[in-house]
Design a binder for these strands. Structure first.
Lengths: 109, 109
DNA sequence: TTCGGTACCTGGTGTTGCCAAGTACTGGTG
DNA sequence: CACCAGTACTTGGCAACACCAGGTACCGAA
């Protein structure tokens, strides 16, 4: 979709990953695939991994290494309490933003 | 609202400004005030002005200098055809993003 | 043995919003 | 007159984040 989407993803991608992890624990490769399924076909692997490193360092997730039969061991991320808090805040910020933007939409008037 | 909103604004703020200009031409100070009214109370003046310079350089807007009775001359921005195109693309990208994110929302399931 | 699929990592780049400070013009107040 | 608040625009440096472009490593099948 181009540069527009890239910029719009900033700050939103983290929330999406947290939301995915809220459904159930998952590992990086899986999360990337999930995002692609969602429609973000151009999402870059490196972006997701870097993001996971960040949210790990902020203590939002717990990590467990699980051996895989098909490759290197998986790093399975589980949402911790602080991650849940962050996700809650994400939803509230998102709603705020989405509401204001709706008011700017021509159809909204 | 904090850092979360700051990051989320990236890539969205431009679209909001274009949408504001689509309603009617406006100048920087006025646009900043409009954004503050919309609820983005922490928006920084410099951010808006820098954004306006960018969209001007990309040829999305036309500029007219209009003298003000209360201060320096105003730079009134008018949305050009390319600006309208960009705005249309913004809305489509925004809807795409908003839709996917809704599918991740707990209530959406 | 090579190749594709799985799985993760990393250094560098560009864009963007914030911070902080500055310029400049006007009208009102003391 | 001097000063200040409000109006209006500008700019250099910073931090965060997604992308790019590569790399490592492990496995099974052809």
């Amino acid at each position: 979709m181009g540069k527009q989407q890239t910029e719009m993803l900033k700050g939103v991608l983290e929330g999406m990953v947290l939301a995915i992890l809220a459904e159930r624990p998952a590992y990086g490769y899986e999360i990337t695939a999930r995002l692609r399924d969602l429609g973000f076909t151009d999402i870059v692997e490196g972006t997701v991994y870097a993001l996971l490193v960040r949210i790990e360092q902020r203590g939002l997730v717990d990590i467990e290494k699980v051996p895989s039969e098909k490759g290197p061991p998986r790093k399975v991320y589980t949402l911790g309490p602080e991650g849940h808090d962050q996700l809650t805040e994400f939803w509230s910020t998102w709603k705020f933003l989405a509401d204001r933007i709706d008011t700017l939409q021509p159809k909204g008037n």
